[in-house]
Every structure is written in C-alpha cells, then in structure tokens.
Design a protein around this nucleic acid. Structure first.
Length: 615
DNA sequence: ACGGGACCA
DNA sequence: GTGATGGTCCCGT
C-alpha cells in the first residue's frame, strides 16, 4: 500500500536513527500487554515518552532497538514482495483462498456456547483480599518485572510485563508486592471448583483463565448463556471474593476476545449468528485476536491489514507473504471461526519440560557450570514430578546483550537424571564459550522434549519399557505409555542378557560423557549446595593438536571433530568476509556470523526473498 | 527429520 | 535495574 512513511533504517549509527523509527520503537517498548483493559484513559503518548526515557541506553533498550530495526527491514522486504505480487496474475491464488474460505464456511458450527472466564487483575486482587487497604492505592505484584497490577495503577500507564523501575517512574507511589504463588494457586482452586459445576470438562488456560462449554448446562437448566454466566460470575464473586470477566460466543476465539470487552467485572456476549459474527470481526483490530502479537500486527499493518475485515481483500497475498499456516489462521479470524471443543488440559499431551533462571551477568566458566548444574537439578525435579524423560535436551542461554541462543542434542537414550542432563549439556555450553569470545550470560536454561513417559507402564531404570505382566507378543498390544507412540522402537524384551548389554552400553556412555565433561580441564562443579554429588573430575585426558588453530584439544573423536569443524567454519567466514560477493548467502540467516558480517558492511542476501521468489 | 530462531500467551 | 514456562511456525540443511 503506502510505503512512504516506513523507510528502512540502513543507518550505521543506530544512536542517530532518524526520527521515523522512534515511533515503532516506542510502540514496541510499550510492551506486549498494550491491549489489556484499563488503559483507555491513559495518555499513551506521554507514557511511551517516559518509558523511552527510563529505558534509554540500557542493554535491554539496545536489544529492543535491534529487534525493531530488523523488523523494519523485514517489513520493507514484505512490502517489496507485495509490490511484486501486485504486478503478477494471482487468480489461482485467489481461487485457492476462496476455496479454503468456502470450506471453512461449511464447517462453521453455531450450536455451541463457549465462554472464556478471566479473573480481573488476579494476583493483585488476591493480595487485596488479605490487605484491603491496598484497594485504594496503585499496587502491583512481581519482582523485577510486574506480573500484574490493580486498576488504580493502570491509570498511570503501569502494565504487566513492565520493569519494576519503569513502573516506578510512571507512578512513584506504586506499591510493589512480592509474588505469593501458593496463595494464588489456592484461590484459583476455589474458583475452578465453582467453574466445574458449570462444565466439569472445563479447560484451564492459565492460573486465572479458563474456557468452558456451557451448552449442556444451558439445556439442562433451561437458561440462556448470558444468564448462566451472570449466575456463575455472581457465585464466584460471592464465595471467593474475586471478580471475573467473561466472554460468550460460538467458539473459543470469540469468547476470548469478548472477555476483554467489559473488563473488569463484566461480560459480553456475541450471538451465535453468522451475520453478527462477521460484522463483529470486520471492525476488530487484528491485535485483539489471540495469537497476533506486536510483530505480526506490524507486519499486517504494513500491507494494510489493521482489522480482521481487511484480511479478505488481501487473501490472495497472505500465503506468499506469511506462509500457509498464517493464511489459514487469518482466514479463520476473518470468518470468526474457532474451536468449540473444550477439554481439560490433562488431556493435552505435554511436549516439553523446561527450567530457566535469570541472574546477574556471568562470564566466569566455573560459575556458569554451577548454574548449569543447578538447572540440571531443577529439571530432574520437574521431570520426576511430571514423570518424563527426554530424548532431546536443549540448552538455552541469553547473552548479556539479551540475545537468546539455543543448542540441542539428542542423547542416545532418554535422560532425566541431573547428572545425565548436566553431562549432555556441558559440551554444548563449552562449545558456545569457544564460539563466543568473552561470553557473558544473564540467563541459562535446560529443556527436555521428545518426551518419553515413565508413567503407568513400567519403565525400568535404563529407560526400557517393561510390561506389568510378561507379554510374549509385543506387537499385539501397542503400549499406551507414551502419548505419541515414541516408545514404539523400544523392543519389549525382559531377557537378562539384553538388560546386561544395555547396562554395559549405558555405563560406557557415561564414561564417555565424563571424559567429554573434561573438555575444559579445570572444570569443577562439585561445590554446589544441597549435598548432591556432581559428576566427579577424572584425570586430564590425552590431547591432540588441532590442525587449524594448532591448540591442543581433547583426543576424543567427537569432541575433536566438533572443534575442527568449528575452526574450519571460522576460517571460511574470514575468507568469505574478505571477498565481498554473494557468497555470504551461504551463511545461515540470522546466525551471529551473518550479524558480524553485516556489521562489517558485507552485503546480505535475504534467503526469505529467495523463497518467496521461487515458490 | 532435525536444529535453531522468532513469536506468542 | 526488564521473568518463566510451554507451544507453534518457519527456515535451512
């Protein structure tokens, strides 16, 4: 559409970025919860000014600025691509889109009454129950960043997700309370007990949100949906003293949007009628839809999609610009469609278990290992609680610059013990330390995915599924143990010889790992609290000299090859950087190598453009 | 299929 | 002085 106002900033001096980029950056700094209720009477202009000035110069700010610049560039590419598509014959795309819309229309189900219930300023409300005097002052809950705040605080522009010191700048008299999760969990339980009366199969979306399908309740009690919701909200307020807001509609998407419209302590119903739904969506800003955040909002806005109604005239472009899934999602937004199936979260299959902690910047290798060991222990606890092992282990770090990196590995068997987690994660950390000179972290985390359940059907110590009763024909009864059947390739075999072999194999592997852990010879992690034993330190392993960098490396095949690979890739980059041809496109998009190059002024070729072009 | 980044709630 | 946890999608290889 119009591309005049959104020139990209190719400015090599970000601190002198032209004025036009301030708008988007300030908008970004307003945070993710801009659309939350209670902000209507706030002067957003003034608020963003204060936030901007409070944040300016911080590492967080610089990182946000980077992200904003990259997004602006990405949008520039989107616009270019849209221009190109405008000149093309898109009739087949158009037909495809219309066919999909027709298909969706056929699937429209207006027979269900779904509601979304959302507690008003939940954590703050619970705190106010204990200390009623807090009701009359602006107050927020959460250390570091605010998790929530009461409506008095929102009048000042204070919002959830906002940093402590920024909130204080906006509202110096703001009262800050520490988090008290146990209290909130207990209160949430009371509320859920009431919701269960209306739909025993209700779905908890978070600690203070839930979806219910009240169709049956309406029928059985001969009540209208809004009457049911009035009744439920009154019951919740009376017995738990917490006020909730609710949205009522034909599906979860509408209900979620609607629950925000009359907040706090209100409800909104959108009738189960196609015309009413279409009209409602037509004028609804896309950002109000669950799943469209700050970034996608800006991308859509750039091609002229501000409201869900704007999706239709752009339907032929969406797949090419944003991908098939995004197109399908947006098509459902346009039509006001969403899921009507509401079910308990326990029915959902868990995909990952993770832990992470933020701390002051740490560059010290031993301190980092201590943090890793701590994370490993935390993850072991969580895995034990949830009864899972992981076939994939990921290390997540956030650099002192707020840049986030993840590295993952697939251990040869499912892991869950802190010692295993640590051992498999350490080489990834060590590699990062090698790749990133002077690496300083502000966050470190571990995640297990590709989960294997250790529940129900016995899984013995070595991660091999065992049957409760001896079964001779394993193929006859597929094991229900793991949600996605990931256990299928585990032969069910109780023979002792097999077990002995497995035991030996695992022992060998642990030995290997302990050697791997010694990659940095002076590593020691044994001094952590809680008395649990960290992997022991063994003597220094044999060393070989790397043919590239000539420094001595551990003579373990895997370790050594990894190191050499890294050295080689480094060399390649140096060579590529020297000759400034399109060779740079060989370097992965978004890699820090590419960033290093782009900072050095080496031109980039955007792989996405290529994808769009050749699609 | 997998690893990694980005986004979202 | 800017959180924790978990899910999804997309891209490149």
């Amino acid at each position: 559409m119009e591309s005049s106002g959104d020139k990209p900033t190719n400015n090599p001096h970000p601190e002198q970025a032209p004025d036009e980029s301030f708008g988007t950056l300030k908008y970004q700094l307003l945070g993710p919860s801009l659309t939350k209720a209670g902000q209507d009477s706030v002067d957003q202009q003034k608020v963003s000014e204060i936030i901007y000035n409070a944040s300016k110069g911080s590492k967080f700010f610089n990182h946000e600025q980077d992200r904003d610049r990259n997004l602006t560039l990405k949008i520039e590419r989107i616009l270019k691509e849209k221009e190109r598509l405008d000149r093309l014959d898109l009739s087949s795309e158009l037909r495809r889109a219309d066919e999909y819309l027709a298909e969706l229309e056929i699937s429209r189900d207006l027979s269900q009454h779904v509601i979304h219930v959302d507690c008003d300023a939940f954590f703050a409300a619970v705190e106010e129950l204990d200390r009623p005097e807090l009701k009359t002052v602006p107050m927020a809950v959460g250390k570091g960043v605010l998790t929530t705040c009461n409506y008095l605080a929102r009048k000042f522009g204070v919002r959830s997700g906002m940093a402590h010191f920024v909130a204080k700048r906006l509202c110096p008299q703001l009262v800050l309370l520490p988090l008290n999760y146990d209290k909130y969990t207990a209160k949430a339980k009371e509320i859920r007990a009431i919701m269960a009366e209306y739909d025993p199969l209700f779905e908890s979306a978070s600690i203070d949100e839930a979806y219910l399908n009240i169709t049956s309740y309406c029928d059985e009690n001969n009540l209208q949906p809004d009457e049911v919701v009035e009744r439920m909200r009154a019951e919740i307020l009376e017995t738990t003293k917490v006020s909730v807001s609710a949205g009522i509609g034909a599906n979860a998407k509408i209900a979620k949007i609607a629950s925000n419209l009359n907040k706090p302590n209100g409800q909104f119903q959108l009738p189960n009628e196609r015309e009413a739904i279409m009209a409602f969506m037509r004028d609804l800003p896309v950002r109000k839809v669950n799943g469209i955040g700050r970034v996608f909002e800006r991308e859509l806005e750039s091609i002229g999609v501000k409201k869900c109604g704007d999706i239709f005239p752009n339907r032929a472009f969406l797949t090419k610009l944003f991908g098939e899934k995004a197109f399908q999602f947006l098509a459902q937004c346009y039509l006001g469609l969403g899921r009507t199936k509401i079910e308990p979260v326990e029915n959902h299959e868990r995909k990952s278990v993770s832990t992470e902690t933020t701390f002051h910047d740490i560059g010290d290798r031993e301190e980092l290992r201590a943090k890793l060991w701590w994370a490993a222990q935390e993850l072991e606890k969580d895995l034990a609680r949830t009864q899972f092992k992981g076939r994939t282990l990921a290390l997540k770090v956030k650099l002192h610059t707020f840049e986030v990196l993840t590295r993952q590995t697939a251990p040869s068997r499912p892991v869950f013990l802190a010692k295993e987690l640590y051992s498999f994660a350490l080489p990834m950390l060590a590699k990062l330390e090698k790749d990133i000179p002077n690496m300083k972290l502000r966050l470190l985390g571990l995640r297990c995915s590709n989960l294997v359940s250790t529940q129900k059907v016995g899984i013995n110590f070595f991660g091999i599924a065992t049957q409760p009763k001896p079964v001779t024909a394993p193929a006859s009864e597929p094991s229900p143990v793991s949600p996605s059947g990931v256990n299928a390739d585990h032969e069910i075999c109780a023979e002792e010889a097999f077990e002995a072999a497995a035991r030996q194999e695992i022992q060998d592997e642990m030995n290997d790992l302990e050697r791997l852990s010694q990659e940095i010879p002076d590593v020691s992690v044994a001094r952590e609290p809680e008395g649990s034993a960290a992997p022991e330190v063994v003597e220094t392993p044999p060393m070989w000299d790397c043919p590239i960098c000539t420094r001595p490396q551990i003579a373990d095949d895997r370790t050594f090859n990894e190191h050499v690979d890294f050295c080689l890739s480094r060399q390649t980059i140096r060579e590529v950087a020297q000759d400034t041809t399109e060779e740079t496109s060989l370097i992965p998009h978004n890699s820090r190598k590419r960033k290093m190059l782009s900072q050095a002024g080496v031109p980039e070729i955007d792989p996405k453009q290529k994808r769009l072009f050749f699609q």
